[in-house]
């Protein structure tokens, strides 16, 4: 099963990478932002499997984005690979430190505490007038190990970078799901005490999940900052986190691919809604979410599971 899934993922990667050559430039940049956001959603899926839903995941997204922007501004580094590595590291570090506090919380308290932490970062950034406060500031055009493309070439390079990082993270996360620590997510959600009777610390297992979600969230923020070309404190605001949770529910937790499909579908729905009804796009967005929950309770991912004709759904 896992070999087949990996093969399927690899071929999807090739198809998506090739599709960019045929797609119009505006669609490539839309997909770039969608897949960058999908990384945050990937982290949310890791947490959601264990029953945890943070309303402040934008914290890591924002940390990753500001790391990229500040590396260029203060240190003068514009290499995309270096910026990504540093962003992932710093976001992971933040998640590790914050994790000592957050890992003790569950349910709505977990959600609200993570929200409070992301809003404190928001407040700090708003207060930092040298970084443009809420207006934010621009991100230098990234280079790729010496290669410095512009215009369409830059768009494609960023898209392929996002795709490559996305594929690596998706592979890493699905590998993690098959390890003992990863597979214990659903038992944690169902009943923690049973896990502790096995002699494992639930808080440690959750701490690891928080770090994983933080790292991929930071990478997502870093890639988003590069493709938008601008960062602002709004990236840490609770509505940004709310948007990520929205996409997670839309996608469903059934597979890692769902994060990417869900995120792309969300961006397309949003942009079409803005195009068709500029004053009433929130209504379309809300209706889509509502209908998804009512008629596709397992998210978009479940459609593909059904198409695949998976007979073993629901079986352990």
């Amino acid at each position: 099963m896992s070999a087949r899934t990996n093969l399927a993922g690899a071929s999807a990667f090739v198809v998506l990478a090739a599709a960019a050559l045929a797609a119009p430039a505006w669609f490539v940049s839309l997909a770039t932002i969608a897949f960058a956001n999908a990384l945050v959603v990937l982290g949310l899926i890791v947490l959601w499997r264990a029953g945890l839903v943070p309303f402040g995941q934008a914290l890591y997204y924002c940390v990753g984005a500001y790391t990229v922007a500040l590396l260029a501004r203060w240190v003068g580094i514009t290499d995309a690979f270096v910026m990504l590595a540093v962003s992932g590291l710093i976001a992971g570090l933040v998640a590790y430190v914050v994790g000592f506090l957050l890992a003790r919380y569950r349910e709505i308290f977990f959600a609200m505490l993570s929200l409070a932490l992301s809003m404190i970062l928001y407040g700090v950034l708003v207060k930092t007038e040298t970084l443009g406060s809420t207006d934010g500031f621009g991100v230098a055009t990234p280079t790729f190990a010496g290669y410095a493309p512009h215009r369409e070439a830059l768009g494609l390079a960023l898209y392929w970078l996002v795709l490559a990082v996305g594929a690596l993270c998706a592979f890493a996360v699905s590998t993690y799901f098959r390890t003992t620590a990863g597979a214990l997510a659903i038992p944690i959600r169902d009943n923690e005490i049973r896990i502790e009777f096995l002699g494992l610390s639930v808080n440690d297992l959750i701490h690891l999940k928080l770090v994983i979600a933080g790292v991929v969230g930071g990478l997502g923020g870093a890639l988003a900052a590069m493709s938008i070309g601008h960062v602002d404190p709004n990236m840490s605001y609770w509505t940004t986190s709310g948007g990520f949770v929205f996409v997670t529910i839309l996608a469903g937790a059934s597979s890692v691919a769902a994060a990417f499909v869900g995120s792309l579908v969300f961006e397309i729905v949003r942009t079409v809604a803005v195009d068709l009804l500029p004053g009433f796009w929130q209504m379309i967005l809300g209706s889509v979410l509502l209908l998804t929950i009512l008629f596709l309770p397992e998210g978009l991912g479940s459609v593909f599971a059904r198409l695949r004709g998976a007979p073993d759904r629901g079986a352990p």
Binding site: L30, N37, I228, H230, N234, T240, E267, R270, T271, V274
Partner: peptide, 12 residues
């Protein structure tokens, strides 16, 4: 919307 939305709609 966010800066990402504004930039996306500008590109569109």
């Amino acid at each position: 919307g966010s800066a990402a939305n504004v930039v996306t709609e500008f590109r569109n």
